[in-house]
Design a protein around this nucleic acid. Structure first.
Lengths: 346, 346
DNA sequence: TTGAAAGCGCTACCAC
DNA sequence: GTGGTAGCGCTTTCAA
């Protein structure tokens, strides 16, 4: 497992360590022939600088840390691909850690990452996180941070998110156009930015259509659907109320699949008895029964942009003072689950 | 971003570096009072050893590298969770890299990982990989390696896999019991261990049932379904032959979803026109139309075991000479997609 | 243009 | 038990 080192090259070529080091870095203060000789030898013997030693010396690691709720989630899995695509070309390593929607584990993940010395952080907050002081502390110490998806507006840094309000607005409008009137939203905890935005878009569409807003139709899942039971509770509360909804709009990937699963178990006919749609990045929503109407976020692009902004921050010579807030449009794909016209009883 | 170091502690407590270092490691050669004093001071000032420095010195990194085809795949996503669950408790960091089913990228990923100094490697081969000399080189240099899922039998090391033959056998048997007779298999490239095993199980079941084996019913997808077109080609070849199948068995997650999608696009009635089932770890296969019969692998357990075996290898004092081959049973879940009795025309 | 040497933070060997 | 010191591989002053 041992690689050739600068010392080996120096010895072989009868040069000093520093000369070799400089030649390898392409310093101008080295004569052509020496530089060429060193580089040739290095290539020939497959020299690779020891990153650990470099990092120790330079106090950087060429690693970026990612904290998100969980990998199997199709939205985040795509985001990761986006992040990796740029990290790969810029020669950064991506270290992914999962918070599993727990504030505790988010803190642990962060500690672990900083302990391992990362050059920058990409984070999407866990559903439990309302206090961001653990992140603020790192940010204050100078760690570059970029938020994506579930962001905090309290930081002077870049933000990457989807147009959650627009997506929720589009989806609610679509449901209204299909003739649904009592539209429920099953959503994440109220303190999350994404929740607030998705509710705002929903209310905006209802208001514009002259529809009443019934707060009892909005069900918050405190663990973002990590606990299947909380989705079950939300759904049964909706149906057990005297005035059940005629459509459900689920505000995240997990909530969407969970709700669909519960509705089917209850024997509800979709889209006849009830319309069903939600935010989801699952790759094949048309395979579901019924094919699922979704709001899709450009997850790959979001990951890509977040990573680009972060690396820009990391590599910037002078302190950055202008920060961007990138908002990506979402895409509504109407399918059978909200289409009363092709409704089939089964 | 600066943490307190051993030197700071030594200075503050008027001790030597080495004493502090030893006290922190809980060495027996340190007097109680000194040790306690050091530990108290360290805790109070939130001392964290610099891992980079430790790694440089000890020539280990407490990182394990993982190479797999791609993260969004539900099987691998679960495997990752399993790996992380043990890495987390053993205090290892998991670095995941994707080969995207490309031999080239697998080599690059491996180079990147070793350059970053990992203590051990968990790998599932890409579909393109038939020559394992890149891995053999690292293994020969002393890097602990554990194969999972798509393994190579050419190494003296631990292997973790599913009972692919048993799973394929069970599924084929199930199809036979449902009355299907011309059962096709859409599968990965022939050189992969998983392919060979899944075909063996399939053939065994057919033979035992006295059914003929028709090689033209086995379709290999050279890229494991990464290219949607190769699945389309496979399916259309099956149907365009004079003698089409009455059931299809897809041998991986991606192939299963791809095939289902194509059959639906073709307007085939499942399970009436054709039965459909496959290997898949997708979390909600009952949401599909029709609910999908699957062979599920214990992905989490497999990841967990692979990581445990790897860490055992890494931490073993003496050279390990006895290697394990862990084979995990698969689970057949029969659902509507292979059930002719509840077949519905639509 | 090149070389010597210090030091990043840590561990381990050798004295005492 | 404790302290001094060398060295992991690299970069970077400072001299020459």
């Amino acid at each position: 497992m041992q690689n050739i080192t600068i010392k080996d090259i120096a010895k072989a070529l009868d040069l000093s360590y520093s000369t070799v080091s400089r030649a390898l870095k392409g310093s101008y203060k080295i004569s052509e022939p020496v530089r060429n000789k060193v580089i040739a030898y290095a290539n020939e013997h497959n020299y690779r600088p020891n990153l650990l030693a470099q990092s120790l010396k330079n106090k950087n690691s060429r690693c970026i840390g990612v904290v998100l709720c969980n990998i199997p989630n199709s939205f985040f899995a795509e985001v990761i691909s986006g992040i990796e695509s740029v990290a790969y070309t810029k020669n950064y390593l991506v270290i992914i850690t999962q918070s599993h929607e727990s504030y505790e584990r988010e803190i642990q993940a962060l500690e672990n990452l900083t302990w391992r010395s990362i050059d920058g952080l990409l984070i999407s907050l866990s559903t439990e996180t309302s206090d961001c002081s653990h992140i603020a502390a790192l940010h204050a110490k100078g760690l570059p941070v970029v938020f994506f998806d579930r962001v905090s507006e309290d930081f002077k840094t870049h933000l990457v998110k989807a147009d959650n309000e627009g997506g929720a607005y589009d989806l609610t409008n679509h449901l209204l156009h299909q003739g649904y009137r009592r539209i429920a939203q099953i959503t994440s905890p109220a303190h999350l930015s994404i929740t607030q935005e998705r509710i705002a878009g929903y209310k905006k569409a209802l208001s514009e259509a002259g529809q009443p807003i019934d707060e009892s139709l909005i069900k918050y899942c405190e663990h973002g659907g990590m606990l299947f039971e909380e989705i079950e509770t939300a759904v049964s509360e909706l149906f057990d109320s005297g005035n059940p909804p005629d459509a459900i709009f689920a505000a995240s990937d997990r909530l969407t699949l969970g709700t669909l699963s519960i509705l089917k178990k209850m024997g509800k006919s979709i889209p006849g008895d009830i319309g069903m749609a939600g935010f989801s990045n699952f790759s094949e929503p048309e395979l579901f029964e019924p094919a699922l109407t979704t709001i899709k976020q450009p997850a790959f692009e979001m990951g890509k942009t977040a990573a680009e902004l972060l690396i820009q921050l990391i590599e910037s010579k002078r302190p950055v003072t202008e920060f961007e807030k990138k908002v990506f449009p979402t895409e509504l794909k109407a399918r059978a689950s909200t289409n009363r016209k092709i409704s089939v009883a089964y």
